[in-house]
Design a protein around this nucleic acid. Sequence first.
DNA 1: AGCAATTTAGTTGTGCACAATTAAATTGCG
DNA 2: CGCAATTTAATTGTGCACAACTAAATTGCT
Lengths: 165, 165
Amino acid sequence: MTATPAPSPEAPAAGDFLRLDEQICFSLNAASRAFGGVYRVLLKDLGLTYPQYLVMLVLWEHGELPVKKVGEHLRLDSGTLSPLLKRLETAGLVRRERSARDERSVQVGLTEEGAALRERALSVPRRIAAATGADLEEIRELRARLDRLTAALDEAALSEAPGCT
Amino acid sequence: MTATPAPSPEAPAAGDFLRLDEQICFSLNAASRAFGGVYRVLLKDLGLTYPQYLVMLVLWEHGELPVKKVGEHLRLDSGTLSPLLKRLETAGLVRRERSARDERSVQVGLTEEGAALRERALSVPRRIAAATGADLEEIRELRARLDRLTAALDEAALSEAPGCT
DNA sequence: AGCAATTTAGTTGTGCACAATTAAATTGCG
DNA sequence: CGCAATTTAATTGTGCACAACTAAATTGCT
């Protein structure tokens, strides 16, 4: 009575959605972790984890930034970034210093070593692209869909937050 | 010389890939976390985290399974599942017992309470679908693309593992 | 039977994600 | 100015992901 798979050969029963459901978000989750596995291998040489690599990308592109801005680029808060940045600092890739203009904010910048690491990272995107086995156009479209999805979900999370029905 | 953004207004320089790169996998990562936020809200009522919900989906669909099989369905290993299942057991949703036939394996099954929880989960997929703002067809196609991507990445990870150039 | 290789869970340690809280500096308003 | 509200990082605590390792049972081979 409890865990019978419930054949239901003709009508799409309500329970079927629990299977479909798994596939929608689980596919995303699995793809994200599969990427993680490939990045882990490629980034090992550089001594970076994938989230650390994302931070380095932001710094390589924008130069010195306050923690807040780094978090906005990556959709991460200080609870994640503070320890991560501390590890990058310990590794000698990043400098952190309180802003003189606003003592609340901490400016994050690259050390020479951190800036130099960019050269060794240049081959990563091509190798990742090769691992996906997809052409640039497909990747672009997939990215667009995912960004739309993220925007819709963030929107929904906002209206869900209080007591909105 | 170090952190200059490097304008390069006409030629697609090698460094541009470091931006594109961010967008490929970061979009995926961001979408996955955005889903996590929506699920977190919806599953709070049920007292489940998203990974715990995935485990419950597997058990609702397949009934009693060894830990190994649960892991195969979800692409997770015992390092993740053992503590997670222990929490579900503490919550009274799941039973764990050593198989008599093979003392190495642990069978995971639903308690009555765990089986009953399924009823309250039936509304989740619909509410998630609503939050995505996408129709079923788009979701299906996206899922197919992601699954292909995951397969390609897993494939690549395998040939990358030893010393394959 | 005897023993090495394999399989299955669990444990340990590192790092990330995120909610909740804290502390300090800044801003805004009367 | 004086003080409440806001902003910014950091900290704390929970849970997940995964690599590396351990322990125990099973399988396979001779």
